[in-house]
Design a protein around this nucleic acid. Structure first.
Length: 469
RNA sequence: GAGCCCGUAGCUCAGUCGGUAGAGCACCGGCCUUUUAAGCCGGGUGCCGCUGGUUCGAUUCCAGCCGGGCUCACCA
């Protein structure tokens, strides 16, 4: 039977209810007892009367008596219904389909094969389904359908469901961790006039009434630092960033970031906090992918390169020296690249390539870190990036709070890319004075990937971006 | 954006060295009052991703396109 015919058959049964004067999509719903509670209670006290609401996920009809399975709150319980108990109820039952939502009232008992079952004596339709759910045994396997029809994925695949439950728990635990330490949660603009705080291509949108283009934020950084200027000494934001670039197993055009800023702290204080935060979350989620006993490694990029090649970039980056470094280390450089890209390739291929465990890379050249403070008399940023399984998870600095220097860095960026604009308002905020501040950004999608040992960002984003069909 | 792989029924999957397809679940009809991947008897769903080409004949071979996966690039 073709899908169309199946849908027609289901609609026929839907109409049967209508013709009987039974509303197939009632607004009011009776409240059922939680399935896990029913099972618990039965194991303690034996038979009792109960009611359940849920979706029918299996039917075993046997003429004058039948079994089915209802599913609610991701728990299942079997029900039993017999014609002789109530021919009216049995008539309703005969017009139900897998996928329908029902209310069942009955007595909990144990069948002779040992299954805890609700012996139904009242049955009510709560919502009709007119489509075919994925197959009961294999569930939904097709990667594309899983992503496009996530509702069917979480309905049928327990692993997938668990991922998103853990995602929610992860974010809850992060909030708890930060709130307990006196951090203040804020929401800053997603629609921005000047997209700043990161090196990325923004999405452009348009405000009709003002007749002006706006940008979806690529980072909340510059706004959060304004709040430090304003006197909030520990602030954080959890929210989406939008970057108009390629999609991959590690990149979704919109992704969730945690950014936090704390006054009276530098990047090393933030490093301790970051490690503590991630270990605490790993413990709370009860995952074994992060060794919470072992301190995270700390590796200086510039020192390592100096040891390996003799080249020292702590007084600035020379493009020729950088290229020679790459060559010496056997780093593959495909085509024309920006110095910062070459540098990234160098440390990724020569330092990170062997390290799977969490590692803080420190000591980045100042010129690749326009928002970070440097060490005195050096061109080395006080910055770290946390890598786990070769994936960048976090990025942090001692925040640059010297307005002139920040302004100069912005102007350099504009010189390199005339599309960019200097955020003068941010500079002005710094001119009022910002205390010494440490800042941190953690990519939460990627953090979850690492915690759950998943290889694709699409597995941790409940509705990842896909091209329209 | 580039390379490689994939796309068969609503779902999970076979298959066709070129003669337009098949199994289980689901679905339809019948039997069945404690089943549980219920069972038994009968039914067989399909622009074989789309568009062209080669061919007497294409779901199969070839090309282009669409969608997905992986790798790379951009980036986080």
């Amino acid at each position: 039977m073709a899908e169309e015919d199946i849908i027609r058959a289901k609609k026929d049964r839907l109409n049967w209810f209508k013709e009987k004067g039974i509303e197939p999509y009632p607004a009011k719903s009776p409240k059922g007892e939680d399935i896990s509670k029913i099972i618990e209670k039965f194991q303690k006290q034996g038979e009792f009367e109960t009611s359940v609401t849920g979706r029918i996920v299996a039917l075993r009809r046997m003429g004058k008596a039948s079994f089915g399975v209802v599913f609610s709150n991701f728990k299942k319980i079997q029900f039993y219904i017999k014609r002789d108990d109530s021919p009216e109820n049995y008539d309703i039952f005969k017009h139900l389909d897998i996928g329908d939502f029902v209310f069942i009232k009955g007595k909990v008992f144990r069948t002779k094969t040992g299954e805890i079952t609700v012996h139904t004596y009242k049955l009510k339709l709560l919502a009709k389904s007119i489509r075919v759910l994925p197959e009961k045994w294999h569930g939904l396997r097709d990667e594309e359908t899983i992503l496009r029809k996530r509702y069917l994925d979480i309905l049928t695949n327990e692993n997938s469901r668990k991922t998103f439950i853990l995602r929610s728990k992860m974010i809850t635990e992060i909030r708890k961790f930060l709130n307990e330490r006196g951090f203040f949660e804020v929401e800053t603009p997603i629609l921005q006039n000047i997209p700043g705080g990161a090196e990325a291509e923004p999405f452009v949108t348009h405000h009709n009434a003002l007749d002006m283009d706006l940008y979806l934020r690529i980072a909340p950084e510059l706004y959060l630092k304004r709040l430090i200027v304003g006197g909030f000494e520990k602030v954080y934001e959890i929210g989406k960033n939008f970057r108009n670039e390629g999609i991959s197993t590690k990149h979704n055009p919109e992704f969730t970031m945690l950014e936090l800023y704390m006054a009276w702290a530098d990047f090393e204080d933030v490093m301790d906090l970051c490690e503590e935060l991630i270990k605490s979350v790993a413990e709370k989620l009860n995952v074994s992918t992060i060794d919470v006993k072992k301190p995270f490694k700390r590796v200086s990029i510039l020192q390592t390169l100096k040891e390996k090649t003799g080249f020292d970039f702590s007084d600035g980056v020379d493009l020729e020296k950088l290229k020679q470094t790459a060559e010496l280390l056997g780093v593959q450089l495909d085509d024309e690249k920006t110095p910062s890209k070459i540098f990234e390739n160098v440390y990724e291929q020569s330092i990170l390539s062997k390290i799977d465990e969490p590692v803080f890379l420190v000591d980045f050249p100042e010129e690749f870190s326009p928002l970070a403070k440097t060490y005195p008399n050096k061109k080395v940023a006080q910055r770290f990036e946390l890598y786990i399984k070769k994936m960048e998870i976090a990025n942090a600095y001692s925040e640059l709070n010297e307005p002139e220097k920040q302004s100069a860095h912005f102007q350099t960026q504009v010189r390199k890319n005339p599309q960019k604009k200097v955020d003068k308002d941010f500079i002005e905020a710094l001119e009022y004075g910002m205390p010494p501040t440490g800042g941190l950004g953690i990519g939460l999608d990627r953090l979850l990937m690492v915690l759950l040992d998943l290889d694709s960002i699409k597995d941790v984003i409940i509705f990842p971006h896909l091209k329209p069909r």
